[in-house]
Computed example of a mutant assay.
Amino acid sequence: MMDFTGLLLGYKKNRPLTDAERKNQLKQKERLELPLNYDLCVTRLNSTFMETVDRYYAWRGVLTMMMGVFILLCGVGYMDLVWITVTRWGQPDENPEEAMLFLLVTGMILLTSMGVYSWIALKETLTFTHFPIRLNRKTRKVYVFRPGRPGRPILTADWDKLFVTMTPCKGSGTGLNRNWDIRAHVMADDGETVLDTFAFDFVWHGGELDVLRGHWEFLRRYMEDGPEQAHTLVDVCMPIAEHRETLRCSFNRFYVNFLGGGLWLWYMLLPYWLLCVVGRIVSMWTSKVPVWPEHIQAECRIEADDPYVKDERSNQKKELYPI
């Protein structure tokens, strides 16, 4: 489900936990008997670590497309105003001073708007192609590439000390129309204060949260029980860990997103889908592939005889998506 909570302004820090967060806590040592759900999130998997995409990856490119359209409309609209003013210049009912003042004020407003739209678009462009999350079973660490952190893009946290909870996303509606995600809080020593926050890769829309819990259980069992179940369940690894996604992958990722509402909805939204694909291509091809620092790579070394290795080479030419 399309949702950009945490991408534009980040998450609030240095605050106490809320009662709702305590109520919806997901515990690392508590097993949930639910169907496991991995939702095409895994990029690579082995006995040492599992790496997933970020919560924004599925709808990557929508912000780029929308902001690009708004910037284009602002530019074309202003040029249209200038053209109308110039063509009416010198007519008896035209006041040159008022016309120039109108163009100046309008230009400042539109220029400011274009600056804001560009700032939003930069959350997806000229950054990383995705923001991977790596869960290391052996070091019990979670490594997270975070958007909007050019100086400190990577967060390292202790898996066992994270406070994990299901959280409703602001501005996504109420009740059955609300989006939910799984957030992990880095806590202060007092166990009450949230120092930092990141979200895992899955966003769920609706009031039935067992699907969301099932995704958490997929992650939890990998860390707590071992790689066996994840290795069996994951039949496709997203082919983006070491390079940009292909053009076909960009088309297909949005095809799957829109197809969730039925084939008739996909045909009805086809023009919007194509615009989103264009935005995704621009977003991906102006960004660089994330690379983990050497010390993290050293901590995540894979054994030569590891029987649970899976990555895009394990897909065996299987069709990732229907088209």
Rank of each mutant, 00 (worst) to 15 (best):
V278T: 07
P290C: 13
L34G: 02
T286N: 09
Y11K: 07
Y78H: 13
I84A: 14
L195H: 05
L72H: 09
L101Q: 14
L269A: 14
T87K: 11
R31D: 11
Y143W: 13
T156L: 05
D196M: 06
R213E: 05
W266I: 04
E303M: 07
R244T: 11
I84L: 13
G107L: 10
F128Q: 06
F218M: 03
M114A: 15
K317H: 14
N252S: 10
Y56L: 09
R253E: 06
G68C: 08
G68R: 00
L320R: 02
Y321R: 04
M100N: 10
F70N: 05
G115F: 07
K170T: 10
D160S: 13
W59P: 01
N14H: 13
N252A: 09
K288A: 13
Q297M: 14
M65G: 00
I240N: 01
A230G: 02
Y308M: 06
R221H: 08
D201H: 05
Y308F: 15
N24A: 13
L195V: 14
I281A: 08
N252H: 05
S287H: 03
I84S: 12
D225L: 12
N37E: 11
E30G: 00
T193M: 07
K12L: 12
P293T: 04
E208R: 13
K29I: 07
W83E: 11
L81V: 04
V194S: 00
H205M: 12
G214V: 02
F4D: 00
A298D: 11
S172K: 00
Y255H: 15
P307K: 08
T139Q: 07
R248K: 14
L269C: 14
M1I: 09
P322Q: 12
P92A: 13
L259Q: 11
T85N: 08
N179M: 01
R301V: 15
K317L: 10
L263W: 10
L45I: 09
R244S: 12
K161A: 15
Y267D: 04
L103R: 03
C276N: 09
A184C: 15
Y78N: 03
K29Y: 12
L103H: 06
A304W: 04
K13P: 02
D311M: 06
G115L: 11
T197V: 15
E51R: 00
R183C: 03
L7C: 07
W292Y: 09
T64G: 01
E192I: 05
I296E: 05
I323H: 11
L110M: 14
G68F: 03
P92Y: 05
S283A: 15
W292F: 10
R134I: 06
W159P: 00
K170R: 12
D305Y: 10
F163A: 02
F4L: 03
S113V: 03
L63W: 01
V289L: 05
T125K: 09
A20K: 11
E98F: 09
V282L: 14
K161V: 04
W264C: 04
H185M: 15
L103T: 07
D19N: 10
T232E: 15
G262M: 06
